[in-house]
């Protein structure tokens, strides 16, 4: 019983899947953290920190999503650094890695593991 409650509180619903247009992102507030959530193709989601360390602004959810080779990336809308959505790694500067978050669709809701 206890374990189940645990799971329910850990996944926090932030919006509905329909709220995210395919191939774009949104920014969610989870606790104090700004998280960028991207919908790639119909149901594949990724979540990384919204703050771009190069641009020093909370804006990554507004970037263009695409691929470089096999990697799915978002380009920072400020200075165009690209980040691997799966790992958070910056392609231009592999020393820099963003925090990634677990995200899922549950009954049409988009949820982040808190």
């Amino acid at each position: 019983m206890l374990a189940e409650t645990q799971i329910q509180t850990d996944w926090e619903t932030v919006c509905q899947l329909d709220d995210i247009t395919p191939f774009t992102g949104v920014c969610a507030l989870v606790g104090e953290i700004h998280i960028a959530i991207f919908r790639v193709s119909d149901d594949k989601l990724y979540a990384i920190q919204n703050y771009c360390p190069f641009g020093q602004a909370s804006i990554l959810s507004r970037g263009i999503v695409g691929t470089v080779g096999e990697r799915i990336v978002v380009a920072s809308p400020l200075y165009k650094q690209q980040y691997d959505l799966a790992t958070g790694e910056c392609l231009e500067d592999p020393e820099t890695t963003l925090t990634t978050y677990a995200v899922r669709v549950h009954d049409g809701s988009v949820q982040i593991l808190n």
């Binding site: 395919p22 804006i59 263009i64």
Partner: peptide, 21 residues
């Protein structure tokens, strides 16, 4: 919906993004 994901930094919100977002 079919075009929005193509729009660059400024077009996507019909405004010019400045350095602080």
């Amino acid at each position: 919906d079919k075009h929005i994901h193509l729009q660059d930094t400024n077009d996507i919100f019909l405004a010019n993004m400045q350095k602080d977002g």
